[in-house]
Amino acid sequence: MNALQIKKGATKHSAYNLRPAFSEIEERHTLAVLVENEPGVLARVIGLFSGRGYNIESLTVAEVDHTGHRSRITIVTKGTPQVIEQIKAQLGRIVVVHEVHDLTVEGPSVERELAMLKVVGQGDKRVEAMRMAEIFRANVVDTTLDSFIFEITGAPEKIDAFADLMRPLGLAEIARTGVAALRRGL
């Protein structure tokens, strides 16, 4: 398989139509869905994914416009190009969905996730955990003589890496928010 073929971002009208719509290769896409903040709207979105057998890798939701009652749902999903297109079309069909943006296709975007990690330990391990946290620019938001809670923000891969390092140092609990994402530039 030519490496170029999985390049993302090409559309039907693009000069670089390198993304065959019926390819079998699975891609990870980050979707931003702007919805009316009314009861049941999250259930509609989640029900769509479960009912039609689509994947959700992560999902975050919060109201972003209090006067306009809009919420932004950020979904990270995985599927073949055809499935991704279907997901977008099906989301767009929900009456209370206002906009669907495929951040993976629409150009470069910034993805961030927040995580809190509780690390339990004493002595050298505790010092080592603290040193690692500094390297990763994680903040300490709670401390006892036997534990820290670190707060870390970054791309999901960075959080994965940090968690991997903390595991032998006494990682006891982890809470992650899932990805929030915005397109770069205007």
Partner: peptide, 11 residues
């Protein structure tokens, strides 16, 4: 009229 019908089954 429904964009989700297009390319759902047949390209």
């Amino acid at each position: 009229i429904d964009p989700s019908s297009i390319n759902k089954v047949i390209k």
